[in-house]
Nucleic acid binder design. Structure first.
Lengths: 120, 120
DNA sequence: ACAACATATGAACAACTATTCATAAGTATA
DNA sequence: TATACTTATGAATAGTTGTTCATATGTTGT
């Protein structure tokens, strides 16, 4: 009997079965890849990446972000919500004002990584 | 006269002018951020990230990718075109078969980076 | 030249997304 | 509590995007 793990895929039209089998066995779990796509979705919109880029400098309140990006308060607020739900940013309230900041260092690293790729 | 660089932003509603000024002065160019968003767009779709993840293991032909991902040949082909236009992958032809592979190491690094963020 | 096979591409459609507009919710101060 | 101010949110809309279907292009062998 075989000691190999059984990898499932439709054999239909496969040309190099060994390559497919190997690649699939080395793949991260399907769910991880979905989460990964969701993570990168946050960086795939100009408004959101501009917000994140601003927050690398310092924490900022909604009004300041809005002015800095020359956008609508509503648009910024909507995007902040998305970023917060993805746990990339966090917020703290001081009276009427809500300050947003990066949730951890990863955002910095990912953006730096991307910039490196582009400006090489 | 002032020796500072003049940063433009609508003063409307600004609360902490110094913070806005500082953040804006540290920002990458507008165009760079747009390119960055475009780069991450490639990783923000499950099909595309699954393709990239497969290609980390080895170069693969369209038929094999199609089978491995249990998708349509057309869908894969369309996404391969997008990835190629973004210069994340390259292709070589051997007869009827076209093999795709990662264009450079950055893809690996970016995916690894993302996985690290998720699985921490 | 023809048949068989691998890949690419254009058009159409459904699903998703970002913005706007109007308004609500939360907070401070008079 | 009335007002002004900051932020959040729901609905509507316009624009974008991924997949499918049909078909074209390119390649090999007969």
């Amino acid at each position: 009997m075989k000691s190999e793990i059984d990898i499932e895929f439709s054999n239909e039209g496969v040309i190099h079965e060994d390559v497919v089998r190997k690649a699939l066995s080395e793949q991260p779990a399907e769910e991880l890849l979905a989460d990964l796509a969701d993570l990168f979705k946050n960086f795939s919109d100009t408004t959101r990446i501009r917000i994140l880029s601003l927050l690398i400098s310092d924490e900022m309140c909604v009004a300041d972000i809005t002015a800095a990006l020359n956008a609508t308060q509503s648009a910024i607020s909507h995007q902040l919500r998305i970023l917060k739900q993805s746990r990339l940013i966090k917020s703290r309230r001081a009276g009427k004002i809500v300050y947003y900041s990066l949730a951890d260092e990863h955002v910095k690293t990912i953006i730096a990584m991307g910039l490196e790729h582009i400006t090489e």
